[in-house]
Write a protein that binds this DNA or RNA. Structure first.
Lengths: 342, 342
DNA sequence: GTGAAAGCGCTAACAG
DNA sequence: CTGTTAGCGCTTTCAC
């Protein structure tokens, strides 16, 4: 015997399948008389009836499923940032009755997006968590494809393009500025910035923010003081060695663009037997969870990753359920976490 | 215009929807003549046709979706163990063309399972990751409900019940035994076991394993040397203080049942200013990832969590795709990780 | 070879 | 108030 369906109940109760559907879905309906209603309910229970969500979704044109898309080579669940964002997403989803469909990377890199858009018919909308693997151009193209296919979506993290989309991120310019002011206030004049990739929009924002902070102070942030590590530890070490080669001219403070870079910097400090903040002040930008686990505790600007997930999911659901939804770009405030390294 | 469907293509091509379906699905079919086939393909591309997975799933009775069920109060993605298992699961899924549906906890604790079984119609099967919140009785009941509903599933972690199910875990008895032998070999005679909850099957297995190892040696593991902490740090401290109260009678080595307990023990060692291994040898059981991040590096038996996820997902997919699948209980071997604490 | 018809399980609109 | 009808978009038989 396969699972009982509406028509099975209907047969036994001597009514039409439609009647059963109404009784089961609209709890207190008056469409069906009390006697029949109770009979139907009773039989449904006897048979252990459960809906076929698939059939229901087909006709209702909604699944209450949200798709997750994360361009990342490594397993996404290992990534602290993603884990936090996912937790925030989950929090929203469970309160609003949605579930999350995690797409497995298809392997074929190029066709991934298109294929997954295809698959997305399973979902009412898509959540993109951008990573540093996302080139602005690709993101932009994805956006156009999604819009063309009329697929609702929201993006989290590092999108600075021109298209107006539902986006939740953090104000990196403001972080850069705050970092600049913080270091100025501590009396630093020779400041460096450890960055990932040159073309990463986040890094651009941070640099611009810092320069803005410095603008009235006479302090500068020359290109030579911006280190591009490409997220390679050896490269990071090279950059740092260059900066620290001359005792006289070395920076007194380094601002670090993200968790992984911070890790490299900590490795370096340990390897070269430096002390922070005495030899070098360290100011970081990163995930609260990650940062609070480090020893010594870095002074840092924490990104509200959990909240980003929460808000993004909420925006997406709003846009799904409310047709007159207007797209918004939301920049969440960062949080200053005092530590021992500045 | 809503998304183009089979019949749209059919109309334009002057054929029936069925023909289009055949062409699109069975790549090299001979059912349809070459000319028509190419026409259909061309029109499909022009229209930007994409399948409606939902409709397809309804008729094919399979979604290529696997559901994930994790009974855990906190956000599951924060949990190292789960994250690792998920990564393993993902790895299998992406190579076999499945996707993962993460159910959001419904809030209502009691009805959760039933509701989720209902929802599971979306999926071809369910993956359960048991946590220490899972009482054996509940697990057992879940199993019966699933079987009754003819839902395929696999369980990961801490199931020691009688029902024959697809299960992937780690051989805790063997770990306990190996732990016992390891400590004996190091000359310890006074050994304690720091455990979570008394009724946790895992802990039972570990204790039995240790006792088996000790059986010919004269060393004992009395109840007084088993500390139940209920995963509370204060309780752990109480237990440890009791053990360490008398200088003469204190244990020389402690075996720790899992990551969280190990954390408590490390806290304790730091708080009481002890040194390991000189004051106290520490032997742990836990996740490779977590353990390798600790300083000092604990000597430990690592649980192959990633692999557990991988294998479990593979088993589940096998059982879905192969009707004559036979249920198996798989116990994965642990891995010894030498460290600095024994 | 080809196309038409039936049906997956459900719901909303429509007559009675 | 009640029940019947017509689809949702797709696939697979089955006749032609």
């Amino acid at each position: 015997m396969s699972a009982p369906k509406l028509s099975d109940i209907a047969k036994r109760a001597g009514v039409s399948a439609a009647a059963v559907s109404i009784v089961l879905n609209h709890n207190e309906t008056k469409r069906v008389g009390l006697a029949k209603r109770q009979l139907i309910l009773k039989i449904a229970k006897e048979l252990g009836y459960t809906q076929n969500v698939l059939a229901k979704a087909l006709v209702e044109r909604r699944t209450r499923l949200l798709g997750l898309m994360v361009p990342l080579r490594d397993p996404i669940f290992f990534n602290q940032f993603i884990a936090q964002a996912l937790s925030g997403i989950q929090s929203t989803l469970s309160s609003r009755g949605y579930n999350l469909l995690v797409y497995s990377p298809s392997g074929r890199p190029g066709r991934a997006t298109r294929d997954q858009i295809l698959e997305s018919k399973f979902t009412d909308g898509l959540i993109f968590i951008n990573t540093r693997l996302c080139a602005p151009r690709e993101i932009s193209q994805t956006i156009h494809e999604l819009d063309e296919a009329k697929i609702k979506f929201v993006m989290i993290n590092s999108y600075y393009g021109r298209e107006l989309i539902d986006y939740v991120g953090v104000d990196d310019f403001a972080i850069g500025e705050a970092a600049g002011f913080h270091l100025l206030a501590r009396g630093h004049k020779s400041i460096a910035f450890l960055s990932g990739s040159q073309h990463l929009p986040t890094n651009l924002q941070l640099v611009q923010g810092m320069r803005r902070a410095f603008s009235d102070s006479g302090v500068e942030l020359p290109e030579s003081r911006i280190g591009y590590t490409e997220y390679q530890q050896p490269t990071a070490f090279m950059v740092l060695d260059r900066w620290f080669a001359s005792k006289r001219d070395r920076p007194t403070a380094v601002f670090v663009g993200d968790d992984q870079l911070l890790n490299h910097l900590y490795d370096y400090v340990e390897a070269r037997n430096l002390k922070s903040p005495s030899d070098i002040a360290i100011l970081a930008r990163g995930n609260a969870g990650f940062i609070s686990m480090l020893r010594p505790q870095p002074t840092a600007f924490a990104i509200p990753t959990f909240q980003m997930g929460e808000v993004a999911a909420a925006r997406l659901i709003d846009s799904i359920e409310n047709p007159s939804h207007r797209r918004t770009r939301i920049l969440l405030p960062f949080q200053f976490m005092p530590g021992q390294t500045t």
